[in-house]
């Protein structure tokens, strides 16, 4: 942990800030949420990494999608993701968001979450243990350091692709496009 190296703080305060202050919006989509309480309370204590849960997506910069995502929930997931301030990072938790997991043949869950919103990292497993969250967090640090956690940029660049996928699923969405065509230029 290079949190205490003052030199790095002076070089790129914003990047260091994003690394060591991950405010998480835990989205209780599925069974994965059961692993979150132990990870943020006394047993595993996520706060020592600067990871704390916050109340609304406006205050968050890490989006943790815990478990399968049903079609109905996906709408809320997209909405929440779009309301988070940039830079924002997304981590899919458990095998269901990756490829459908045990719901691979379900009619009302989506199979690939990264078709709808960009994902910076995955935690595989059914269920992953709380330790896996911390490993994911340290990996995310490395990605932020190398500026590879750029899902939010990809979302902006390929917004037409994501929006098309979203609209394919729902028909018409309740909210206007996040980026207009001029924004991308």
């Amino acid at each position: 942990m290079d949190r205490n190296q003052l030199k790095k703080w002076f070089e790129s305060p914003a990047k260091m800030g994003h690394k060591y202050s991950l405010h998480v919006v835990y989205f209780c989509t599925g069974c994965g949420i059961i692993e979150i309480p132990p990870s943020i309370t006394a047993r595993w204590d996520a706060e020592r990494f600067g990871v704390i849960p916050v109340a609304t997506p406006r205050q968050a910069n890490l989006f943790l999608i815990t478990g399968y995502v049903s079609v109905k929930t996906l709408k809320a997931v997209i909405r929440t993701y779009e309301q988070m301030p940039e830079p924002k990072f997304t981590v899919g938790f458990g095998s269901c968001p990756i490829n459908g997991g045990m719901y691979w043949d379900s009619y009302n869950t989506i199979k690939h979450l990264d078709k709808y919103i960009p994902i910076d990292g995955w935690i595989a497993g059914c269920m992953p243990r709380p330790e896996a969250i911390f490993i994911a967090v340290t990996h995310l640090w490395t990605l932020i350091d190398k500026e590879m956690a750029d899902g939010y940029k990809k979302y902006k660049e390929n917004y037409r692709y994501y929006r098309a996928n979203q609209e394919q699923l729902y028909g018409k969405l309740d909210w206007p496009p996040l980026f207009s065509e001029e924004d991308k230029k």
Partner: peptide
């Protein structure tokens, strides 16, 4: 942003 771009637990 518009008044409808507002936090409502993910719903529009």
């Amino acid at each position: 942003v518009d008044q409808y771009d507002n936090y409502a637990a993910g719903a529009a």
